[in-house]
Amino acid sequence: MSMDIFMQHLLNGISVGSLYALIAIGYTMVYGILLLINFAHGDIFMMASYFMIFAVVDFGMPIWIAIPLIILLTVILGMLLERSAYKPLREAPRMSIMISAIGASFLLENLATYLFSGVPKGYPDIPWLTKVVNIGNVSFQIVTVVAPVLVIFILIGLMWLVNHTKTGMAMRAVSKDFETARLMGIKINTVIAATFAIGSGLAAVGSVLWGAKYSSVYPLMGVMPGLKCFVAAVFGGIGNIPGAVLGGIVLGLGETMLVAFFPGLTGYRDAFAFVLLIVMLLVRPNGLLGEKSTDKV
């Protein structure tokens, strides 16, 4: 394999990994605060893609208006989901919330099938993301570079939020102890809603970048990325934000390299995530950057 081709794969791997990272952050933040695997997260990502199609194709909005709008809509959808499917179960056993999450996921998938049909639609073209650039013999879409850079900025921003702001301090407190957080005067429902807002917003950002790479939009499009990004979050240490980013990148790179070095294994691309998960759970159940021992699941 020549250096150029290797660079090409490396770049692809990192950029796919960055997309995974954006979605994985949502899983990890929600898990961190509610100890809940938000099974509907991948479907929120799917809905964001449909929002974009409606905004641009059906309503003819310019991209620069459509992007903030669909991020906003996705944030609202995520908060609505939390409000209706999870908030009423705040004091319920963990298993009930888990089942509610699975239900919410099915609901969104079937709602999308019912409303938008199962026939795939094309994601609107965003020229400044899909444009192909050549450097030497390596050629790539602009999104390939935009994704990792954006992820780095988002990670820095989130770490600042969590570790150096009052809201972040409240998030860390709520994640350990609802009751005592309430005693401090923290409105825990607001903090939890904010966590869902951030996770859903990032899923929407992820969907825009995703659409530039894989333009097919259909009701079950969130399932596989959702599962993989959950794996990425567990791999990095669920509850840990840099862990989710690291997990996403490792997963994206691993997958890409697997196919690059062993073309015969192309069909197993999606299986890679799960092999990674099994190995990780056997070797280091708390993930790469996870806390050593917790009272979590």
Partner: peptide, 21 residues
């Protein structure tokens, strides 16, 4: 509260600050 319930993942200073949330 009974059992103290300090936030173990926050620093001592942060625990004081969050008391003044």
């Amino acid at each position: 509260p009974e059992g103290r319930r300090v936030f173990p993942n926050l620093t001592v200073l942060e625990n004081l600050k969050i008391g003044a949330y």
